[in-house]
């Protein structure tokens, strides 16, 4: 109940994760979520295997991973829905099991679960008003509903809503209590592009108000646009961690072009520096990787010119987050 005065203002969040043991309405900066060495087992199967994770206040951390990577188990442990088998989880500065037992802590955490969890016979606005009543200072339900376009299906029961409509209602339910930590499990799955933009706007607004967001997604574009921090997980472990730009910059640039299949690459290899690797990744699709500088580009194009080969779709660039992801997990997300 205690007000924080003018606290909780937007932006400038302290990325330092040092706030520990504070009450839910303590310092607005610092770590919203801090996970160290989290382990979750189901019988003999280890779903989460020593995972570290941080969500700073006023920022988005994206948890990227293929199905079965342990993302949902991680979220459930952070929400107190499952008891961790090892490691520590601190939610807004308090141990997760203590936090989950405290109504004010739960009020400060919003969750959009993958299975939705919306009562099937409920009407959207009645449900949202009900959830708002559980909070002391909820968002204005009408304004929130309007933003997410809920009035268009206010009189339809949850059972008859489309997947995208359910997603929007679930997001409204997660946001209605003005959470300081928000768990979003695939928030834009099944949404049309316009609805996706509305969801991204709302997430950015919550972040600007100081909320920390843990986003699990299959959508790498979403992670690149929303997240300041990305954790790529597989087999319950973090394979890579960093800002999206840092993750993609970690890989070296490559030059790609397409031409007729089966070109003799021997002379090209001899013409280029030794640490540059030339390969035909797929028939007719050539990749030159290594330290690709202007000399290498000139070498490739002059080799093409000598042979009368037209390099189509010639491009030089760093790999996308998706390519980094594929390299690390060997699996495709979509």
């Amino acid at each position: 109940m205690a007000g924080r005065g003018a606290g909780g203002r937007a932006g400038g969040a302290d990325l330092d994760s040092s706030a520990v043991g504070g009450p839910p309405d303590g310092s607005p900066s610092g770590a919203a979520l801090r996970v160290r060495g989290l382990v979750k087992r189901y019988g003999a199967r280890t779903a989460v295997d020593g995972l570290d994770l941080d969500v700073a206040a006023g920022s988005v951390t994206a948890l990227l991973g293929p199905n079965g990577a342990g993302k949902t188990s991680t979220v459930e442990c952070c929400l107190g829905l499952r008891r961790p088998d090892g490691g520590s989880v601190e939610v807004l500065g308090a141990d997760v099991l203590r936090a989950a037992a405290d109504p004010d802590h739960r009020a400060a955490v919003g969750a959009m679960l993958q299975d939705g969890g919306l009562p099937t016979s409920a009407r959207p606005l009645r449900l949202l008003r009900h959830l708002a009543r559980l909070h002391a200072h909820p968002r204005d339900v009408d304004v929130l509903a309007e933003r997410l376009g809920l009035p268009a299906f206010a009189r339809t029961s949850v059972r008859r809503l489309s997947g995208g409509q359910r997603q929007r209602l679930a997001l409204a339910a997660a946001l209605v209590g003005r959470p300081r930590l928000l768990f979003l499990d695939e928030p834009t799955a099944g949404l049309d592009p316009a609805a996706r933009l509305v969801v991204w706007d709302l997430v950015r607004e919550a972040v600007a108000e100081g909320a920390g967001v843990l986003l699990t997604t299959h959508d790498l574009d979403e992670a690149e646009r929303l997240a300041q921090h990305v954790v790529i997980v597989d087999g319950g472990r973090a394979l890579a961690t960093g800002a999206p730009g840092v993750l993609t910059a970690r890989s070296t640039a490559s030059l790609r072009f397409t031409a007729g299949p089966g070109l003799d690459l021997g002379p090209l290899r001899r013409a280029l520096p030794e640490d540059v690797v030339v390969s035909e990744a797929a028939p007719g699709s050539y990749v030159v990787s290594g330290d690709v500088d202007p000399q290498v580009v000139a070498g490739v194009t002059s080799w093409c010119a000598q042979r009368g080969v037209m390099p189509d779709a010639l491009s030089v660039g760093r790999p996308s987050l998706e390519e980094v992801f594929l390299d690390l997990t060997g699996r495709s997300l979509r």
Partner: peptide, 15 residues
């Protein structure tokens, strides 16, 4: 109170 768009108070549970 708290019904406007800006954060007035930290989130807390209703009694």
């Amino acid at each position: 109170p708290g019904a406007t768009g800006t954060a007035v108070d930290g989130p807390s549970a209703a009694p």
